[in-house]
Design a protein around this nucleic acid. Structure first.
Lengths: 197, 197
DNA sequence: AGATTACCACCTAGGTGCAAAGGT
DNA sequence: ACCTTTGCACCTAGGTGGTAATCT
């Protein structure tokens, strides 16, 4: 995924189907992005190879709360939950301007995680009930953050499927696929086909 | 103001400065649009004249809750509260599609009102405390709803100040003014100069 | 006849990858 | 050398009033 100073949307974006919640209970739903491994990566000879250790003490926001939070279980289960406006940045000074962006470091591999937290009716987490938090991880959504594309296959994937990149297409192929996964009553989708990194 | 089937934004849009709230209490802030008088209006001989009685039993949503609701007093007082995305429609069947539009009837005169309702922490109104609702009315924000412009002065005002109508301008004049009013610690603004109807 | 609708050219607003320029 | 930033042409998405067709 591309990261920029001003923030860049993830594409394909994360999308989830949720069920098994209490329809009348309230939940916050958010995505967190954590380091997927302890390595620094580089693209060499047409492949991603590890290259030293990751900077693990990077500071910066790693959470993106779904804009419909807080909401009822019924709401979250009604239809697929998409994170199409989630933005990634390498600007540690971001998030001063009210916009909630996830701060990452280039050439590191990341793992998005979905968190579903039951909250009280006022949208506040009950700290006495840690069991009310559920976290879901789908390894097929891992990616390496970059400031410029390295792997031309990834570039072509974006051009082929991101509507905002239509200007770079040779032949437009309207085929859409989804990459399903899931357990615990949650299904994960990328909005478009995606091969990690 | 123009009303359409799909919904049309108000322009100039309503904007308010609020103070005197409890910074830590929670409030819903919303605009309601009510009939300003009991008349049906028509534009004749370059002037608006009354023409029969208003349809007072019109059904349809008249509320637009500010998208940042519910929120704290501190939040509402921090900066001007704008209703730039509020949409007006004549389609009674609207609001089935999740979008919250205000349903009006053409050739009737309307009065927007600002409501500030203190709510419990979970965003629910306390029905045992009716005194926790405050309503503010500013007569300078009255307007007549139309499906096509009648008064060319109004048309020119929109063209001159609405950025989306720039294509119809002869000379662009970047002058901006505000129409202040207010009492009870609330100030009302139109985003642009505006003369009723 | 007068009011409403549908369609249009023309804008604002902002999301793309690219290529050149700038950093380290 | 390699990574990052900037400016750009090209898109999507959607808000304007004008105009002609349509409705009542």
């Amino acid at each position: 995924m591309i990261i920029t100073k001003q923030g860049r949307r993830m594409f394909p974006f994360l999308s989830f189907n949720i069920n098994g919640l209490n329809p009348t209970a309230h939940y916050n739903v958010f995505v967190e992005v954590v380091l997927a491994d302890p390595n620094h990566w580089r693209f060499q000879g047409g492949k991603w190879v590890t290259c030293g250790k990751a900077d693990n003490n990077m500071q910066g926001n790693k959470m993106y709360v779904h804009p419909e939070s807080p909401n009822t279980g019924s709401h979250w289960m009604r239809q697929e939950i998409s994170f199409g406006k989630l933005k990634l940045t390498n600007n540690k000074g971001a998030n001063n301007n009210n916009t909630q962006m996830i701060v990452l470091q280039s050439l590191h591999k990341y793992q998005p995680r979905l968190h579903i937290v039951e909250v009280t009716e006022d949208g506040v987490e009950d700290l006495n009930e840690p069991s009310k938090t559920q976290t879901f991880t789908f390894s097929e959504t891992q990616f390496i953050a970059v400031t410029a594309y390295q792997n031309t296959d990834i570039t072509q994937l974006k051009i082929d499927h991101n509507p905002f990149a239509k200007g770079f297409r040779d032949n437009y192929d309207s085929c859409h696929q989804i990459v399903p996964g899931g357990r615990y009553g949650v299904q994960s989708f990328f909005s478009e086909p995606f091969v990690n990194t």
